[in-house]
Design a protein around this nucleic acid. Structure first.
Length: 256
DNA sequence: ATGGTTGCTTAGCAA
């Protein structure tokens, strides 16, 4: 059995105690993290290694930053999309764990539809599709997970009218996400949950969580061979509760 | 009454 989690922690330094508690409680084998907001040098490596984790980090000052934690050794650690566009922002990290390749991604938010950041988001998602095409095999064992900043369908949005045509729900972003998934991936949550939700992100503002104004924008996508072995997938909604949570809850998938 | 946040960096941006 292999348990994999993904979590946008919104600053690994601000969330370190919660992260360590989550790791101890949930006891996953592999964890993908996003929005570290630290350089590699400032990442709390010693604390995590002391708790028994192998650590791969692709950090950045102030913004972005992604990591992969593993109980078993990590190899083939490769940061970035590695295309000819260049990557000033630390948004992707790939590593091999056992027989599988794990890719942790933080897709750009896009700010406002029509803005420069929106164009960057859509372009980045197309680059991610191209990255999969040239560097991986859909017949293999690969997990692509992280904060995609896209709710795939209306059932992934608690209040559809509040979020219609925003950067998280716009059809162009949904098409770009379907292009990525269409490479050969399965949405593991949808193997086990057919109805509305679950949600993974609630805005800090406007009482998002108390009102359950949530969206499912964090995902664990697996290639067909792995998805066939997915025994469970869920959101750790309780992690969004209490004092100073991340605005995102972790997503967990369990594979035989 | 009709708002209501957090983190990084230090006034303004990003989400």
């Amino acid at each position: 059995m292999l348990k994999l989690a993904t979590w946008n922690v919104n600053s690994v330094r601000a969330r370190l105690e919660r992260l360590l508690a989550f790791l101890a409680r949930e006891n996953p084998d592999v964890v993908c993290l996003q929005e570290l907001k630290v350089t590699d040098a400032d990442f709390p490596r010693l604390e995590l290694e002391g708790a028994g984790w192998q650590v791969a980090v692709h950090g950045q000052k102030t913004y972005n930053g992604v990591a992969i934690l593993s109980r078993a050794p990590l190899s083939h650690v490769e940061p970035g999309l590695n295309d000819d566009v260049g990557d000033p922002e630390a948004r992707l990290l790939s590593a091999r764990v056992g027989d599988a390749r794990v890719v942790s991604v933080y897709v750009p938010n896009g700010k406002v539809v029509g803005s420069d950041k929106w164009a960057y988001k859509l372009a980045w998602m197309r680059r991610l599709r191209a990255y999969l095409e040239r560097s991986a095999d859909p017949a293999g064992l690969l997990v692509l997970c992280g904060d995609f900043n896209v709710a795939p369908e209306d059932r992934d949005v608690a209040r559809v009218e509040d979020w219609r045509d925003t950067v998280l729900t716009h059809e162009e972003a949904r098409v770009a996400l379907r292009e990525i998934v269409g490479w050969g991936l399965t949405d593991t949550i949808r193997i086990h949950h057919a109805g509305d939700g679950p949600y993974t992100w609630w805005d800090y503002r406007m009482l998002g969580f108390p009102k359950n104004n949530g969206l499912r924008i964090d995902h664990i996508f697996a290639t067909t061979a792995l998805a066939a072995r997915c025994r469970d997938a869920y959101v750790d909604r309780d992690e969004r509760k209490g004092k100073l949570p991340s605005d995102h809850a972790p997503v967990v998938a369990v594979f035989d």
